[in-house]
Design a protein around this nucleic acid. Structure first.
Lengths: 109, 109
DNA sequence: TTTACTACTTGACAATGTAAGGTAGTAAGT
DNA sequence: ACTTACTACCTTACATTGTCAAGTAGTAAA
């Protein structure tokens, strides 16, 4: 997979994941890894940034399986950011796909 | 448009453009701008990189409308890179789109 | 007490796009 | 002759975001 494609899209994926239910970092790593290849050093700084930007609020919950889990909860600002990003992604990806399709058309001629 | 989405995709767009016919830099700026927002400071370094990586060969052609044009021609290595990138993009974008769709499904529940 | 798994954090680094500026040729208007 | 505009190319300093590698620490089973 091209590493560069991920840029910017990770934020969308993480926002989507958290929008369904509150999540903690480690859980997000597992979830997000199903879709794109990432390591934990990518997720935690991203969560920090999104929290600084007021898209997430956090709270701690003790765990019986290890250290306390820091949960991330989406804010209304985060929801707004999510729908903005989602729309922006859909427009972007479909315009690229259309360009690819057009290219394939003109190759036939 | 989200600036980050562009990362990596520009290379695909430029390869696609050049694969149809030889292009010069300024022409590419005009072409590529139709699809994504870019400035010339993005294109020229990219063309240099792709040429260094042997995806393009270049030749100069004099112009009656200004300075000589440096044309870029795709190599067979470049064609291979293009189909690799294209496939990689299609797989990537469809997996993201599927994830978005699934999210919307689970929102209804 | 060692190993493995969960969980979070940080800092140096790499890749790629942006902004802003520069050089220079052609051509048309004043 | 001088200016303006358009064509054409290039470079440098910078910002953003992801990667890698390393570290800290709690729980629990062998």
């Amino acid at each position: 997979m091209n590493a560069q494609f991920k840029k910017g899209v990770l934020e969308l994926i993480v926002l989507l994941c958290v929008s369904h239910k509150d999540r903690y970092g480690y859980e997000l790593i597992v979830e997000v890894s199903k879709i794109v290849d990432i390591n934990d050093g990518t997720i935690y700084p991203l969560l920090k940034r999104l929290t600084n930007e007021k898209y997430f609020e956090t709270y701690l919950v003790e765990s019986t399986e290890g250290p306390s889990r820091k949960y991330y909860k989406i804010t209304s600002l985060g929801e707004a950011r999510l729908s903005e990003l989602k729309e922006s992604w859909l427009a972007f990806s479909s315009s690229i796909n259309e360009f690819i399709r057009e290219s394939e058309e003109s190759d036939k001629e």
